[in-house]
Design a protein around this nucleic acid. Structure first.
Length: 273
DNA sequence: ACGCGGCCCTGGATGC
DNA sequence: TGCATCCAGGGCCGCG
């Protein structure tokens, strides 16, 4: 489900709902079923009673900032958070709050995970130490950076920009969208990227992610914001999910095919190899 | 070191 | 209606 815009949307929704700072975590309950990775139970004991200061996002991770730890949440494909005291099938984490509310993690496929990280160790944590730059915040993700990073890389440009060590937050939907916007064929080998195309691609990635954040994310089947409402960027997708339809720009039939196992969409005329 | 296929899961859509 | 098959927004692991 969630790429950067969806996680950012969940983060903003939680900020609204939780009325931070001032909230406090009274207890954590985990379901018997394991998520992608199991959470250390000793760690869970440590977080009880800590204040909840903020909700942050790094890459596709949500971070609940406590006094001495972060609760790390990755939504996998079908993860979502909501405030509701009643529990449903596929609820896997329940955070009991001082305000007498329960913040609940729901994830049918259980590709997501939930872990506790010491606050001071975050940058050195193995899930974080290899992450690439944020594409939307800061200026580290530049054309010069992407061009240099892509030298010698023989994978397709689409696979390359979905690699979280290259740039974080770009997943399967926005990779197709950004490449279409930049006029780049998804099968172009990364090392063939020119400086000029790197410029256009960085611009396109930033633009598409910002537009999707503005729209509250893309809802295909089951993505829900923290408040339960849908995003609406799906109405503005230019190629993703539009196989056999016409390119908005030139009318050519949009092609769809898996690239390294992920469904991919492009206009064979507008996007150059 | 890099690139890729397999795999972890459930459920919805589709086809017979 | 029932059953089988395929597909899905991610990312870790092991192989070549």
């Amino acid at each position: 489900m969630p790429e950067l815009p969806e996680v950012e949307t969940v983060k903003r929704g939680l900020e609204q709902i939780l009325d931070l700072p001032g909230e406090r975590l009274l207890g954590v309950e985990m379901s018997a079923q394991k998520l992608r990775f199991s959470c250390n139970l000793d760690d869970l004991d440590q977080v009880k009673g800590q204040h909840l200061h903020s909700v942050r996002r790094r890459a596709k991770y949500l971070l609940f900032e406590l006094d001495r730890h972060y609760l790390l949440s990755h939504l996998g494909m079908t993860g979502s958070w909501r405030i509701e005291n009643e529990s449903k099938k596929h609820d896997h984490v329940r955070l009991k709050l001082k305000s007498n509310r329960v913040l609940t993690y729901h994830d049918p496929r259980r590709f997501g995970f939930f872990e506790v990280v010491n606050k001071n160790d975050l940058e050195n944590h193995f899930r974080f130490s290899h992450l690439g730059p944020e594409p939307v915040d800061g200026d580290e993700f530049s054309a010069a950076y992407l061009y240099e990073k892509s030298r010698g890389r023989k994978t397709s440009i689409k696979t390359f920009i979905m690699n979280q060590e290259v740039v974080v937050g770009v997943g399967n939907i926005y990779a197709s969208e950004a490449l279409y916007m930049a006029g780049i064929h998804p099968k172009l080998l990364a090392h063939k990227l020119t400086r000029k195309k790197a410029e256009q691609l960085v611009r396109a990635i930033k633009d598409v992610l910002n537009e999707a954040i503005f729209c509250g994310g893309t809802t295909i089947s089951d993505f829900k914001q923290a408040g339960g409402s849908s995003g609406y960027f799906q109405n503005f997708l230019l190629v993703y999910g539009r196989g056999l339809e016409e390119c908005h720009f030139c009318g050519t039939m949009i092609q769809s095919q898996a690239i390294v196992g992920r469904s991919s969409f492009w206009c064979p005329r507008c996007q150059k190899l």
